[in-house]
């Protein structure tokens, strides 16, 4: 079984206007840089993007926002992007802010074949508006639905030709969850190896969840907040 495609433009070729995308990453850490660049080049429009953050003005999902390719963002924190804030306040962009754990677990539910979850996050806040509340053992929980997304775009450290993935450090974040949740999951990897070369005990995402994989190139791996201890 070989899931390798030539590169990002082939991998995202059938993402059409109005598609719903799950995009891995936390801040600019572990984001699918190559796929985002191809989507910008394709000029696909009216996207619904589910991603913890919305990038910064000139990188990550910020590049899609600049070209006005995004109709709706579903995120937990969007504080680092001035263009995002401008489009939001002017009404050009729809935004649904949801708790970070809810975002993660709605991906997990989709990947686990479960339609919904109950979580206490957001009970008693405006996040709870219109949602079913259920009490278990004296505590209230909100009903939240699994994501139903056309594509997931994820970035891994290593992957093999069968789509098995390994992530590095905190670049793992939402990537394995979104990989499990997409109807079609596209993985870009820093190092693509033949099947059999990855230690089966070390694989984070089983290849059954991945439909397309390619060797990424020219990773910028940009740092958002460079903080250091003086020598």
């Amino acid at each position: 079984m070989n899931k390798v495609v030539a590169g990002p433009s082939e991998a995202v070729r059938d993402i059409g206007d109005g598609a719903t995308l799950l995009l891995g990453g936390f801040g600019l850490c572990g984001i699918p840089e190559n796929c985002i660049a191809s989507l910008v080049k394709m000029g696909v429009k009216n996207l619904t993007c589910v991603s913890n953050n919305a990038g910064v003005d000139d990188f990550g999902i910020g590049l899609l926002l600049q070209q006005k390719q995004v109709k709706k963002m579903i995120s937990s924190y969007v504080g680092e992007n001035a263009e995002f804030e401008r489009q939001l306040l002017s009404g050009e962009l729809q935004v649904e802010l949801i708790p970070q754990g809810t975002l993660a677990t709605r991906c997990l539910a989709a990947g686990y074949g479960m339609p919904a979850i109950f979580t206490p996050a957001g009970v008693g806040t405006e996040v709870a508006a219109g949602k079913e509340v259920r009490n278990f053992n004296g505590k209230d929980y909100l009903l939240e639905y699994a994501f139903d997304a056309d594509f997931a775009l994820v970035k891994a450290w290593k992957g093999d030709t069968m789509g098995n993935l390994i992530f590095h450090a905190t670049a793992r974040n939402f990537n394995p969850l979104m990989a499990m949740a997409g109807k079609i999951t596209i993985a870009e990897v820093e190092e693509l190896v033949p099947a059999g070369e990855l230690d089966p005990d070390a694989i984070h995402t089983p290849g059954i969840y991945v439909q397309r994989i390619f060797q990424g190139t020219n990773y910028e791996n940009r740092i958002e907040q460079r903080t250091v201890t003086r020598r």
């Binding site: 936390f26 801040g27 850490c29 993660a104 590095h168 793992r172 969850l177 984070h204 740092i223």
Partner: peptide, 25 residues
């Protein structure tokens, strides 16, 4: 600095002995 090693404030950090990485779920 390792761009793949950040905290929830997106700041570059390090790990200590016995640390462990996991996904957001």
């Amino acid at each position: 600095e390792d761009p793949d090693l950040i905290n929830a404030g997106k700041q570059t950090i390090t790990t200590v002995k016995g640390s462990v990485f996991f996904d957001s779920a």
